[in-house]
Write a protein that binds this DNA or RNA. Structure first.
Length: 1151
RNA sequence: AGUCUCGUAGCUCAGACGGUUAGAGCGCUACACUGAUAAUGUAGAGGUCCGCGGUUCAAUUCCGCGCGAGACUACCA
């Protein structure tokens, strides 16, 4: 017996299946059914979620997408590799811990030891991990949780070290200082990631001067020298939004191809007494109006006029004259005097204060000449390096060169003119002073020296520290780098081998990210992470990179000999023993490693570089480190058994995160891609399209969600709603719709099947009946089923689960439920257990079992239930779980596209008939005499096979198919077929189509008959063929007609007496059935029917059909009754024929 | 600020290598069906296919500009 249920309860199903999986060890078996028996394999790399908190809804999305394809490929007979992984290191975790402990970064190592701090971090991570594991199970994500990779594991760290060493050996790693975002207020460097946290870029007002840099004329190119007469001073005009960097200026950047001008201008000292002198300024000609705005300056075109001008008449405007225009290249290597000669360049003084070319220079704003201070701008730093421009540095007490601003954001104390010790931005002090204080003072100092052309206020977006809300500055900090720029081209070409979903992310965003790749700063000054395995002498003249624990122990032993270490702290580690217990004996985190002092070849002590490895390196190393490569599993990487991955999928934000670091490491070290297919998943937004955030209070707790709706409905909803890469507007109400619509219907089909199969004792014992026994409808649904299998398979392969879900949904709802099952109902209840009936059972069974398999990757619980309920009775398959079965294989011979089209056609016809009935207010229950279907001959022949079906659906006595309108009087309409005449007549299309639309009935008939019509337009002979027009029929006398592009139906609306009687009787019977239900009659109880005061006509009809009525309603007799009408049940067939009936159960009567 | 993606019914989304009636589900209204019934069907209302230009016989679809949304990038001085 098939199990029957009272109603659909998805949560109950989920619980049951969880229990089933547990009892039968299904998960374990799923990962076990391993290696040798499988020829094909499918590799997923799990992007390790950071264990810094609770999972959110967006994690639901990425987990189910990964799960779907793993399950799909399992069904397709692959061994699927899917190890879970967890990112246990990193800043977010540290910050959470600091918040929890109520400490700050600076307290670590002081108020709390690093050892203690790290142990708290580890504990924190453990707690988060528990939640994540529960979450993973609840959502039905099948991934190997038993042997995860965790980035803090000793084995994992060892692999990371090995990779770093390998990079180092290949000369990819170097130490340098780089300009990085730095927050003086928080006293910490920030990552670019932190800069992009919401709200960090704020619009701020900035005071920004146009500064005059005095040209040393001797160094000017001859071209320019020739155009400069007299002794006037010459200045480069440069604009800056950070005047506090001007004392550090050592170069000016121009664009070689940008146009510049020499402009002679009067420089006013004193407006009152008009003391002035002439000088020459240089800037980009494109920016004349920007540098010399019309409100303040005006151009004079005549040289003589300019020189003889009377300034007193100029009111407040200053005149200027353009001497000469030239390209930026003529400025190259010109020199100028140091603007503020307070400090000397640190080295190569001869290279300082010159003009160089910068590709970033533009003419959108400013002057086309950019002030460069190599210590406070990242572009400045890069270009300075290129041209070997020295920075301005001074030696501190320890003899280390430092920039002119200290770590607190103050000018160093040796500044002259009272600038020493002043904060460059007042935001860094607590005192309430003018925001632009230092900037203003610098400007006014320069103004006194006549070094300022003019000053303006400027609004721009400037990054702020997310912790302190204070502005950041760009500051030179020491870091370790990976020279990714060296392999830029390789990374770009390898990227072309990756399939990106959606394509544009890979083609455009990722590749342009690679184009602009910068060397990867992969060190972090933090505490909880993988320590850099690099030791250095104090002078930095010797360094060693450790690539394994073994190596480290050997080095330690050397060091012990020199007396730098007293003993080997890894004493209890057995070298070359790969057992987990051996590895669990040691810890490689910072608090341990910092105590290790090694010895250089010169016998000098070497200390570890105190920094940690960027967590993005940790996760990017995951293909190798998850296998403890190369210490174990060497072949899995080297022989490509488990590398590269077939599939990864994470949020779009990982494009420059994990997607990038995976790609970088694999490109550099393995000359390979790390993944073949990648889905970059869109964001999860709330139902209004707003980003979910805690502060807005619009987040959804995934645990509550799953508990309420069950994993299947959520999975189905998410996948159905939008394609994985599109943003998902998450509306919880939508989940109920899915449950009712899809799961409800599918459940209903099963319930229907189970009900009748049980009655008939169907359990698929009979042998498979051949298609010879199939009806047209059977052939159709089987064709549709096979088409469905084919399409689903295709969409799965193309990584489009949304299309899979939508096509399955359409099959289940529109085709299986609403058509096949509905039309087959009679077959199940009327017939005896005939071949025809068995066929129907077999087909319905096949549909259900195949749909279950097709949806199993997406709805793993419900499909399992369906499968077990079906298969446990029939025992047709021996699998313990649907997830161990094979993906349905399409039988192309059973696909009949023509039949599918035909059925669509039939559905259209019934819809049209219903529509006509509706218009004429004729119920479907009322039989009608005749339906005429007018369409082309080919279609007619095919439709004939489905005649009975149509007769039943439309409730007509007869259907006539025809391809001619011969016995109808009708009006036809003609319309041009633009597609055809457009290409034929081009610009005359409009004209001709107007003529066609005016054709009368005679011409239309002629066109139909001769398939051609010729007429003249403006003396030109024009031929129209049948294909050039669309002819539709509109109206027929005595019939009602509906037309469509392909066909016309005509319905005979005349209701004869006998038709009316039939309609009435059906209505009567139906009402009796309702009464039976109301009286709680069971299916076999007999009744008597009493009719109260019906008119004669009605009585006559009832008498006439008495036998039929009794048979249908299980009545023994129909009697008259003379009670009052109100006691009876009203049957209101038509207004004029109202009657009242009572029914009584036979039992009652006899008592 | 730049780059990319998107803008179709009240809501969620389809769709069209350019062709004249633009679709589905949900919601709403009315009706029907009643041996899957807390299901189901039919019909109706509801659209300048974001705006403006261009290419074309023909643009919601292709191109350009603008507006709006989102993401990414960014001290571009």
């Amino acid at each position: 017996m098939f199990i029957e249920y009272k109603k659909l309860d998805l949560n109950q199903v989920t619980k049951e299946i969880f229990q089933y999986w547990k009892n039968h060890d299904i998960l374990k078996k799923s990962f076990q059914c391993t290696t040798n028996s499988y020829k094909k394999k499918y590799i997923l790399y799990e992007g390790p979620p950071s264990l810094n908190g609770n999972p959110g809804v967006h994690h639901v999305v990425s987990r189910i997408i990964k799960d779907i394809f793993c399950r799909y490929y399992t069904l397709k007979g692959n061994k699927v590799f899917r190890k879970s992984g967890w990112d246990a290191h990193g800043l977010p975790i540290e910050l959470n811990v600091e918040k929890y402990m109520k400490i700050e970064k600076n307290d670590i190592g002081k108020k709390i030891s690093i050892k203690k701090y790290n142990s708290i971090c580890k504990k924190f991570v453990h707690n988060a991990l528990k939640k994540w594991i529960l979450f993973t199970k609840k959502i039905g994500y099948w991934i190997d949780l038993k042997s995860p990779y965790i980035t803090y594991n000793t084995k994992y760290i060892e692999s990371v070290w090995w990779l770093i060493k390998k990079l180092y050996d290949n000369k990819f790693i170097y130490k340098d200082y780089d300009i990085q975002p730095y927050s003086p207020a928080a006293n910490t460097g920030l990552s670019y990631h932190e800069l992009n946290m919401p709200g960090c870029y704020k619009k701020v007002e900035q005071i920004s001067p146009f500064v005059k840099f005095k040209v040393i004329k001797d160094y000017l190119s001859n071209k320019l020298k020739r155009n400069i007469f007299g002794n006037d001073d010459v200045f480069f005009i440069s604009w800056t939004t950070s005047p506090w960097t001007l004392p550090s200026n050592t170069a000016l950047a121009i664009g070689k191809n940008i146009d510049y001008v020499l402009v002679e201008i009067y420089s006013i000292y004193n407006i009152e007494n008009f003391s002035y002198k002439k000088e020459i300024i240089i800037f980009s000609s494109k920016l004349i109006d920007y540098v010399l705005p019309k409100e303040k300056y005006y151009q004079i075109f005549d040289k003589n006029e300019f020189y003889s001008i009377n300034l007193k008449r100029c009111k407040n405007k200053i005149p200027y004259y353009i001497i000469y225009q030239f390209k930026g290249i003529d400025l190259m290597y010109s020199k100028y005097e140091q603007l503020l000669p307070w400090f000397k360049p640190y080295y190569k003084k001869e290279n300082a204060f010159q003009v160089i070319d910068g590709s970033f220079v533009n003419t959108k704003e400013g002057s086309g000449i950019v002030h460069i201070s190599p210590t406070f701008g990242s572009e400045d730093f890069i270009i300075a390096k290129k041209y070997d421009i020295p920075p301005i540095l001074v030696l501190n007490k320890e003899g280390i060169p430092i920039p002119l601003v200290d770590m607190q954001g103050k000018y160093i104390s040796s500044f002259p003119h009272g600038f020493g010790g002043k904060y460059i931005k007042s935001d860094f002090t607590t005192s309430n002073v003018d925001k632009f204080l230092v900037d203003k003072e610098i400007i006014s100092f320069l103004e006194k020296k006549n070094k300022i052309l003019r000053v303006e206020k400027y609004f721009h977006f400037y990054p702020h520290c997310w912790r302190t809300d204070k502005p950041i500055i760009y500051y030179p900090l020491n870091s370790w780098f990976i020279k990714t720029t060296k392999v830029k081209n390789k990374m770009i070409s390898l990227n072309e081998k990756i399939n990106w979903y959606p394509n544009f992310i890979g083609k455009k965003r990722f590749s342009s990210w690679l184009e602009n790749t910068k060397n990867w700063n992969f060190s972090r000054s933090r505490y909880w992470g993988t320590p850099l395995p690099i030791w250095r002498t104090k002078k930095g003249d010797e360094e060693i990179v450790i690539g394994s624990i073994k190596e480290l122990i050997l080095e330690i032993k050397k060091s012990i000999k020199y007396g730098f270490m007293s003993h080997n702290i890894f004493d209890n580690f057995v070298i070359d023993d790969m057992s987990d217990t051996n590895y669990s004996n040691i810890d490689l985190h910072k608090h341990i490693l910092d105590e290790v002092i090694l010895v250089s070849s010169q016998g000098e002590p070497m200390n570890r570089e105190p920094d940690l490895v960027d967590v993005w390196f940790d996760s990017g190393a995951m293909p190798y480190a998850q296998l403890h490569y190369p210490f174990e599993n060497k072949d899995n990487i080297d022989k490509n058994f488990l590398f590269p991955a077939d599939f990864i999928a994470e949020g779009v934000d990982q494009t420059r995160g994990w997607f990038f670091t995976l790609h970088t490491i694999s490109s550099i070290l393995f000359n390979s891609i790390a993944y073949k297919n990648v889905i970059s998943i869109g964001l999860v937004l709330d139902k209004n399209g707003q980003k979910m955030s805690k502060s807005k209070g619009n987040t959804i707790n995934p645990f509550e969600l799953i508990d309420k709706y069950g994993p299947d409905a959520i999975r189905w909803y998410i996948i159905f709603n939008s394609e994985p890469w599109d943003n998902l507007k998450f509306n919880v109400d939508g989940i109920n719709v899915i449950i009712n619509k899809f799961f409800g219907t599918l459940y209903n089909i099963y319930a229907f099947f189970a009900l009748y199969a049980n009655i008939d004792g169907f359990s698929y014992k009979e042998k498979e009946l051949s298609t010879d026994n199939y009806t047209e409808l059977d052939l159709w649904i089987i064709s549709e089923l096979n088409s469905l299998i084919e399409k689903s398979d295709k969409y799965y392969i193309n990584y489009n689960p949304t299309k899979v879900v939508r096509v399955i949904s359409s099959f289940v709802l529109d085709k299986l439920s609403n058509w096949y099952v509905r039309l087959c109902r009679r077959r199940f209840w009327k017939d005896k257990y005939t071949v025809n009936k068995i066929v129907a059972y077999q087909i319905l069974y096949k549909c259900l079992i195949n749909v279950a398999k097709l949806i199993s990757p997406i709805a793993p619980f419900f499909s399992e239930k369906l499968y077990l309920d079906l298969n446990s009775v029939t025992k047709k398959e021996f699998f313990e779980s649907i997830h161990f079965t094979n993906f349905p294989i399409v039988d192309k011979h059973l696909i009949n596209k023509k039949l599918e089209d035909k059925m669509t056609f039939v559905q259209k016809i019934t819809t049209m008939v219903f529509s006509v009935r509706k218009k004429n207010k004729i119920k479907i229950r009322q039989p009608l005499k005749k339906l005429m279907i007018i369409t082309d001959k080919k279609m007619v022949d095919q439709l004939k096979k489905l005649e009975n079906l149509l007769i039943n659906e439309t409730n007509v006595k007869e259907i006539k198919f025809t391809n001619s309108y011969s016995n109808l009087e009708l009006v036809k309409h003609i319309k041009p077929n633009y597609k055809s005449i457009g290409s034929k007549f081009r610009e005359k299309t409009k004209e001709i189509s107007e003529i066609i639309e005016k054709f009368d009935q005679k011409i239309i008939k002629e066109i139909e008959r001769k398939k051609k019509y010729i007429f003249h337009n403006k003396g030109e002979k024009i031929s129209i063929f049948l294909d050039d027009v669309k002819i539709t029929t509109e109206f027929v006398k005595g019939w009602d007609i509906l037309s469509d592009n392909q066909l016309t139906i005509a319905l005979d609306l005349r209701i004869t007496n006998s038709l009316w009687e039939e309609g009435f009787i059906r209505e009567f019977i139906r009402n009796i059935q309702i009464l039976r239900k109301q009286n709680n009659c069971n299916v076999i109880e007999k009744i008597f029917i009493y009719i109260i005061n019906a008119n004669k006509n009605i009585q006559f009809v009832i008498e006439k059909y008495k036998n039929f009525i009794c048979q249908e309603t299980l009545a023994l007799d129909i009697k008259k009754d003379h009670q009052e009408k109100k006691n009876g049940y009203e049957i209101n067939f038509e207004k004029k024929y109202r009657l009242y009936v009572i029914i009584r159960k036979v039992k009652e009567e006899t008592i």
